[in-house]
């Protein structure tokens, strides 16, 4: 005769078995004294255990109102979001500073200790990014015989991070400069409303470059556009498929200069979606100085697009137009 295992009797008393199992056990217990006595022992053991554990109860519990728990949850969520925002910001600053500074060192080393002067310069010139070019041109600090814009066709987010910061024209030796790139095709178009960072077509993660930190480390002045210092730089690289680098430079006035560099077809698509007539439209006069304008420069299969207040870009446009004129 098969007797009921002890654990099955526990499970039966704990109502952890199916109804059919329990019926079967009860039927057996009715005819088995041994199992029946064991069931009674287990029931007593179970009751004593419950009684013991009830001794270990805290004082009477009055649950706080559920709404108070909800309020605590809302507060915790709010704090968490604030913390995440702060942490993200801090991480962004740290990452940008690290990458930017490392890229800076790499660029210097690569430039000064590389192959022959001409080759070095050509390589470096290809890395000159739009923001630096822009600020240099706007300040007039870059000579008119150094058409850096034409060379601003290579895209690398590390180099862009660095050179978006503190490249000084003086580190390009004039005697080794190779102005070989062909004349760019310059297109100036009018934008609609003022550019907003929230309207970025490039939807990746913007990284903020801490100008102050790099400025202190580099012991250099911040770049200026139209005489206004750049107070913040954000960099975004969409790659490797898109291979587009976007750099936002926020001026002390709050205005933003956005520079994008990438393949012509993809960048033209982005620009065309930014609601101005056409990237290939003829230059237009800017009716309002605060209207955003976009300057596009093409070289080969790459395009550079600078968007910002027309007033700020005017000197740059003048220089580029002048350089791109026939015969230059």
């Amino acid at each position: 005769m098969r007797h009921i295992p002890e654990e099955e009797l526990h499970a039966c008393l704990d109502q952890a078995l199916s109804r059919s199992q329990c019926v079967e056990i009860e039927r057996h217990l009715a005819g088995c004294l041994r199992c029946s006595m064991q069931r009674d022992d287990i029931a007593a053991l179970r009751d004593r255990t419950t009684a013991f554990l009830s001794e270990l109860a805290p004082p009477p519990i009055v649950p706080p109102a559920y709404l108070s728990i909800v309020a605590r949850y809302d507060e915790a969520r709010r704090l968490r979001r604030r913390w995440l925002a702060g942490a993200g910001w801090a991480a962004s600053l740290l990452l940008s500073a690290t990458v930017g500074w490392q890229a800076s060192r790499w660029t210097w080393d690569h430039t000064l200790e590389g192959a022959p002067p001409g080759a070095q310069l050509s390589e470096v010139a290809a890395m000159v990014p739009a923001p630096t070019t822009l600020s240099s041109l706007a300040d007039g600090s870059l000579g008119t015989d150094q058409p850096a814009v034409q060379n601003a066709v290579a895209g690398d987010d590390m180099v862009t991070v660095r050179t978006a910061e503190f490249v000084q024209p003086s580190w390009l030796p004039a005697d080794s400069y190779d102005p070989s790139p062909a004349s760019p095709e310059v297109v100036v178009s009018a934008l609609g409303p003022t550019l907003s960072t929230s309207e970025a077509e490039a939807t990746g993660l913007w990284r903020t470059v801490p100008l102050r930190a790099l400025e202190a480390e580099a012991d250099r002045e911040p770049p200026r556009v139209g005489g206004l210092p750049v107070v913040q730089v954000q960099v975004q690289h969409l790659g490797p498929d898109a291979d587009i680098t976007a750099v936002d430079q926020q001026l002390a006035s709050g205005e933003i200069i956005r520079t994008m560099e990438g393949p012509v077809a993809e960048l033209a698509g982005i620009i065309s979606r930014q609601s101005f007539p056409s990237p290939d439209s003829v230059p237009v006069a800017f009716a309002h100085p605060h209207t955003d304008a976009t300057l596009t420069v093409r070289q080969g299969g790459r395009m550079l697009a600078v968007t910002g207040p027309a007033e700020m870009l005017s000197s740059l446009m003048t220089r580029v137009r002048g350089r791109s004129a026939p015969g230059r």
Partner: peptide, 27 residues
């Protein structure tokens, strides 16, 4: 039993065995 099994990693069938042992040892 299934909830206890899920939380402790025991098989459901082992919960009864464990519980029987625990009760006996406690008493």
């Amino acid at each position: 039993y299934p909830e206890i099994a899920e939380q402790t990693g025991l098989a459901v069938g082992a919960v009864g065995t464990t519980l029987a042992r625990a009760r006996k040892r406690l008493v």
